[in-house]
Design a protein around this nucleic acid. Structure first.
Length: 821
RNA sequence: GCCCGGAUGGCGGAAUGGUAGACGCGGGGGCCUCAAAAGCCCUUGGCCGCAAGGUCGUGUGGGUUCGAGUCCCACUCCGGGCACCA
């Protein structure tokens, strides 16, 4: 495609000028109103792909727009540079992960720059930078001192493919690894955890205050999984020394408890098991603990469809409501890690209990009358209580309260809130991550590495091989050390931290990477935080966004970030995915459409404009055969603007004529529309408004009397300014040519003059019974009487009314009159 | 199974209870040219009609309203999240 200018020359020139100008470097004492714009920092995977282009186009638009609005915009960039891909690549090539990482950081950085996205590069962060490691570790130690980091032996998720443990958040619903897709195994290991559950309540309640997409908030709410209920004691029949505590959200169904269940891991299981039941219980426990997550859930096409595995323990507990003994089972459908690890079972009102009862021949007693047309087993809905003694006749909500009072009075009951959220497992048996700064000493036990000895960094002389084991664990020079406390010989922790710990505070480092010897100055962090606009992919809805929220709160509490906001991201925008042939466009799918191929033809500007124009930013879009045509169309728009700015084919008239007023209106209406689009993330309509204005101007300037020069110049200037955040190179070049080499991005965003937003005459739509029958050009300030009279005068309206007077008239002046016959 | 989204021309989409289809892609026609490319102009939801015009039309069926793509109820299909959390 022949373009009226040399795209690459123009784009490279401006990228250099922006670098030199320092326009987007902000100092911490900047007096302008602050604005923090941030895209989630990327894993450095090499040259940018279309997903990056989309992401950084949005981010750059926000940065440039807010700067033109007069704000000091903090717009930093960095790299989430620890992680498994680099480690795997190093294993393959027999080299060091740093080599890959540094190379790919270079590639990604220059492709982001080639896009024309601008950042304050002085603030760049890299997770694997020893300076960053130092502070990641110092933060870990602060959490440790505060009791928020602890080591425990627990059943954990082990991914054989990644050769490491995973957090619960990294395991898919089907028991496979989020990253490799391998089947996750359960292992009991001594691991480091962060006490995120301490913050469960705050993490949940603070969601309400965030301007985030509802669905992300919903996903977090579900993940945290708060449930209110009652914990109480079931007396074990014939065993005065033994009670079994259970948790329920449905105390009202107590009269329907026909058995109880303990998890295979339950500590009292041994005591509950009678000699004659021992072998079957043991059998079940062995099967349950050896079973992978997948085996435990494989048969679960639906919660009710499970083959409920379980065994009778031989013991009975007393139902406190009825006084009757009910059998105690052990079953793997009850989780040892939730609630008390034991439940009261109500088959009539719980699907899982119902399925189990069916398999094991246990009685079902309804305590809620189901609707007449109800078919099926368990009924969990609302209704009137039956078979429930003192609760009979009540609705479920009231019965819950009464039943709770009863349990508090009679069964050591207490109101309780449980959460689905578990503590965050942060140990990883990997090499390419932040080492956990802990030393184990035979005499002193677990000893933190002193602040002065940080960072603890991995040695360079390692061989990456395919054993799957981290070289840290076997590197004697790293492992063996002296105890910081007693000086005796000791060993280092050889696990590294989950890379999500790095991404949980990088946005704080950006605010102040300048103050020596601390991760950041809290006063600077307090100045810039919270992030005003955070932009990233929906795939981080739970993991990163939940962890970062936890970190922020914890850092405030442990004194790393005193006085800083407890919520890091005020507004979140999640961009849509780019799909091709039905699946996400990604390196692993091998369906990338490389952005570089466009730079010499349509330029970064053409590609950026396309990403803005193609549809709502939050929606996914499909890259199809038609896509290249749309990209060309966007470049064509820039070409047309360029030619108009060159006065190509333009005719002139000398003095302003009344008809020019319409052009002036069009300019101001466009300012209003584009500004509104910027605020509402409606970039596709903002681009459309600019295209529309260009169509108007082109027609005006090239037909009839032609253009009035000062007005055309004003229009082109405004278009350059409105386009500056979207297609920064072309608008910068045009502006510089017209204004003595000035920078359009340093100008103030135009404002619409309200006088020009209203028309003198408008189209009055006349409806009869809601159907459009006439359109009349009327004065904008027409009175109702005039409008109605005028409308009734129209032949088409008269015909539709059939000569009769309307029974009712609805007027919404000046746009609409509706007659009801 | 539960919870969220979504469904509008040939295609991407626009329309924050008031003119459905802005803008763009694609299609059709024309200008320019020896010819083509590029560029420019016109046209483009379906049906009836030579036309003027009429009529139908936003997944389906109801409802609210003077008026519904938009609000409410039920359903169908598509996408996503969660799924033994008691």
């Amino acid at each position: 495609m022949a373009r009226p200018f040399d795209v690459e020359e123009v784009e490279l020139k401006w990228q250099e000028r922006w670098r030199q100008s320092g326009l987007y470097e902000v100092d911490n004492d900047d007096a302008r109103e602050r604005f923090y714009a941030l895209c989630m920092y990327p894993y450095p995977s090499g040259v940018a792909h279309q997903g990056h282009v989309r992401n950084y186009t949005f981010g750059d638009l926000v940065t440039r727009y807010q700067t033109m609005r007069g704000r000091a915009v903090l717009s930093p960039f960095g790299f989430d540079s620890f992680g498994l891909p680099a480690e795997n690549a190093a294993i393959k090539a027999g080299s060091h992960p740093r080599i890959f990482t540094d190379q790919r950081i270079g590639e990604l950085r220059s492709s982001v720059q080639r896009l024309g996205a601008v950042y304050d590069w002085r603030r760049e962060v890299q997770s694997h930078d020893p300076e960053y490691i130092k502070y990641s570790q110092s933060i870990f130690l602060k959490l440790y001192e505060a009791g928020l980091a602890y080591r425990a032996n627990a059943p954990v998720n082990w991914c054989p493919g990644c050769a490491t443990v995973l957090a619960n958040e990294q395991v898919n619903g089907d028991g496979t690894c989020d990253r490799s897709g391998d089947l996750v195994e359960r292992r009991n290991l001594e691991q480091w955890f962060f006490r995120i559950t301490n913050y469960a309540d705050e993490l949940l309640s603070e969601l309400d205050s965030l301007e985030w997409p509802e669905r992300v908030k919903t996903m977090q709410r579900n993940w945290i999984g708060r449930s209110e209920g009652v914990e109480f004691a079931l007396r074990v029949a014939g065993r005065d020394d033994l009670t079994l505590r259970v948790f329920t959200t449905r105390p009202d169904t107590g009269f329907g408890v026909t058995y109880a269940v303990v998890a295979p891991e339950h500590p009292l299981l041994g005591q509950l098991t009678t000699p004659e039941c021992e072998s079957q219980v043991e059998d079940l426990v062995v099967r349950a603990t050896n079973a992978s997550e997948l085996e435990r859930t494989a048969s679960s096409d639906a919660g009710a469809g499970l083959a409920k595995r379980g065994a009778f323990t031989g013991s009975y507990v007393i139902n406190p409501f009825t006084g009757d003994p009910v059998p105690v089972y052990v079953a793997d459908y009850v989780l040892g890690t939730y609630g008390t690890g034991a439940i009261m079972a109500v088959p009539a009102e719980d699907e899982r209990d119902f399925a189990f009862a069916e398999v094991h021949g246990l009685p079902v007693v309804r305590t809620v009358a189901p609707p007449d047309d109800f078919e099926g087993g368990a009924y969990a809905g609302d209704g009137i209580k039956i078979n429930s003694g003192f609760l009979d006749g009540l609705d479920v909500a009231t019965a819950k309260l009464r039943a709770r009072e009863f349990l508090v009075a009679n069964a050591e009951g207490e109101a309780r809130v449980n959460y689905r959220l578990r503590d965050w497992l942060v140990s990883r048996q990997r090499f390419w991550g932040c080492p956990i700064p802990i030393v184990y000493c035979a005499t002193c036990g677990t000893v933190p590495v002193p602040e002065s000895a940080l960072p603890v960094t991995a040695p360079d002389d390692v061989t990456m091989d395919a054993t799957g084991q981290s070289p840290l664990a076997t590197h004697e020079g790293f492992r063996h050390t002296t105890c910081p406390r007693c000086g005796g010989s000791a060993t280092r922790e050889t696990d590294t931290l989950d890379t999500f710990t790095d991404s949980s505070w990088y946005f704080l480092r950006y605010t102040d990477p300048f103050t020596p010897n601390r991760p950041f100055d809290p006063a600077q962090a307090a100045k810039w935080m919270p992030v005003d606009q955070y932009i990233g992919g929906i795939e981080h809805a739970i993991l990163h966004l939940l962890y970062a929220r936890f970190y922020m709160k914890a850092l405030v509490d442990v004194g790393v970030a005193p006085g800083v906001t407890r919520e890091p991201f005020r507004r979140l925008f999640t961009q849509g995915m780019i799909r091709m042939d039905g699946s996400k466009m990604s390196k692993s799918k091998g369906n990338l459409v490389a952005p570089e191929q466009y730079y010499s033809t349509v330029g970064a500007d053409g590609l950026r404009l396309f990403h803005l124009f193609v549809g709502p930013p939050a929606d996914d879009f499909d890259w199809t055969d038609q896509t290249n045509d749309v990209i060309e169309g966007c470049a064509r728009f820039l070409d047309r603007l360029w030619r108009l700015a060159d006065y190509h084919d333009v005719r002139w008239h000398d003095a302003e004529v009344p008809a020019d007023r319409e052009v002036r209106r069009a300019i101001h209406k466009t300012i209003a529309k584009v500004t509104d689009g910027m605020e509402r993330w409606s970039y596709n309509t903002a681009v459309a408004a600019l295209m529309e204005l260009l169509n108007t101007l082109s027609k005006w300037a090239r037909e009839g009397d032609g253009a009035y020069r000062p007005l055309l110049d004003e229009a082109i200037d405004v278009m350059c300014q409105l386009l500056a955040p979207m297609a920064p190179h072309v608008s910068a070049e045009l502006w510089a040519r017209r204004h003595d080499d000035e920078m359009v991005h340093a100008t103030a965003w135009p404002t619409a003059d309200p006088d020009y937003l209203v028309d003198d005459t408008v189209t009055l739509v006349v409806q009869v019974a809601g159907k459009v029958r006439a359109r009349l050009e009327v004065a904008a300030d027409i009175t109702e009487a005039d409008a109605v009279a005028h409308a009734l005068n129209d032949p088409a309206v008269q015909a539709a009314l059939g000569g009769a007077a309307p029974s009712r008239t609805v007027a919404r002046l000046p746009k609409l009159v509706n007659f009801v016959p």
